[in-house]
Amino acid sequence: MGRVNPMVLPGVYAPQEDTELLAGVLCDEPLPPGAAVLDVGTGSGALALRAARLGARVTAVDVSRRAVYAARLNARRAGLPVRVRRGNLFEPVRGESFDLILANPPYVPAPDGGARPRGAARAWDAGPDGRLILDRICREGPALLRPGGVLLIVQSALSDPGRTVGLLREADLKAAVIRRRRISLGPVLRGRERWLRQRGLLSPEENKEELVVVRAELPV
């Protein structure tokens, strides 16, 4: 399987280390033939394309018009039958169910006083604790899983993976962090490094960010 490398349009989140980390976990996940897969917050469609190449029936959702256009364009270029819908998180797929849900949501803590992010920042900013979207996924995602279905979420250690695991277990899923990767601070985190240290999210000597993948399974 090649690297995740779709065409990226201006204003659409470009695949980065978090995309690659989740793509690696996806490739290790055993899927039933013709599995129904949902890629929520698809961006350029990188993960949706990866799932489609594995033989899954894929639906991709994003709130951004540009992202929806980019994902459709990339699916067309790749010759892959990905269904792309525009909408807020799970709204376009209410009433449907899936064998696998992939989520690479916004998860970066932001010193914004609680204001909702706008423009391109919607792809990474997620409120003061980084959980603006993560908590919704944990609350709403389990209802869309088929028995034995799996939810895979990639996030930063800065946005409390323990809370993600706890909320998913409260929803009666078997949940745990299954993969970790430490990466250099990107431009967004470097730009708010002082604020993150003041809040205690980064220690004085820490100069890397840890990414994690949480896997949650609905028992049969």
Score class of each variant (00 low, 15 high):
residue 5 N to I: 06
residue 8 V to W: 04
residue 8 V to S: 09
residue 9 L to T: 06
residue 10 P to F: 05
residue 12 V to F: 09
residue 14 A to Q: 13
residue 15 P to C: 01
residue 15 P to T: 11
residue 15 P to H: 07
residue 16 Q to K: 15
residue 18 D to I: 00
residue 22 L to W: 00
residue 25 V to N: 11
residue 26 L to G: 00
residue 27 C to I: 01
residue 28 D to E: 15
residue 29 E to M: 14
residue 29 E to N: 08
residue 30 P to A: 06
residue 32 P to R: 07
residue 35 A to W: 03
residue 38 L to M: 04
residue 42 T to L: 02
residue 43 G to W: 04
residue 43 G to T: 12
residue 43 G to K: 05
residue 47 L to V: 01
residue 51 A to C: 00
residue 52 A to Q: 01
residue 52 A to N: 03
residue 53 R to G: 13
residue 56 A to F: 04
residue 56 A to H: 02
residue 57 R to M: 13
residue 65 R to M: 13
residue 68 V to H: 09
residue 69 Y to K: 15
residue 69 Y to W: 13
residue 70 A to P: 03
residue 70 A to N: 14
residue 72 R to P: 03
residue 72 R to C: 13
residue 75 A to G: 15
residue 79 G to E: 07
residue 79 G to N: 08
residue 79 G to M: 05
residue 82 V to R: 01
residue 85 R to E: 15
residue 86 R to E: 15
residue 87 G to T: 07
residue 88 N to C: 12
residue 89 L to V: 10
residue 95 G to C: 07
residue 100 L to G: 09
residue 101 I to T: 02
residue 101 I to R: 03
residue 101 I to F: 02
residue 105 P to E: 11
residue 106 P to H: 08
residue 107 Y to G: 05
residue 107 Y to P: 07
residue 110 A to K: 07
residue 112 D to L: 14
residue 120 A to E: 15
residue 123 A to S: 15
residue 123 A to N: 02
residue 124 W to A: 09
residue 126 A to P: 09
residue 129 D to H: 02
residue 129 D to A: 14
residue 131 R to W: 02
residue 131 R to Y: 03
residue 133 I to E: 05
residue 133 I to P: 01
residue 135 D to L: 00
residue 137 I to D: 00
residue 138 C to D: 06
residue 143 A to N: 08
residue 144 L to P: 03
residue 145 L to I: 02
residue 145 L to K: 08
residue 146 R to V: 14
residue 146 R to N: 13
residue 147 P to F: 10
residue 148 G to I: 12
residue 148 G to C: 07
residue 151 L to Y: 06
residue 151 L to V: 01
residue 151 L to R: 03
residue 152 L to F: 01
residue 152 L to P: 08
residue 154 V to D: 01
residue 155 Q to N: 10
residue 155 Q to I: 11
residue 159 S to C: 11
residue 160 D to Q: 12
residue 162 G to S: 08
residue 168 L to T: 00
residue 170 E to I: 06
residue 170 E to H: 03
residue 177 V to P: 13
residue 178 I to T: 11
residue 179 R to F: 08
residue 180 R to N: 02
residue 180 R to D: 06
residue 181 R to E: 05
residue 182 R to D: 15
residue 182 R to T: 10
residue 185 L to A: 13
residue 187 P to F: 13
residue 187 P to G: 03
residue 188 V to L: 06
residue 188 V to M: 05
residue 193 E to K: 15
residue 194 R to H: 12
residue 200 G to I: 02
residue 202 L to H: 01
residue 203 S to Q: 14
residue 203 S to E: 13
residue 206 E to L: 11
residue 209 E to K: 14
residue 210 E to Q: 15
residue 211 L to N: 08
residue 220 V to P: 15
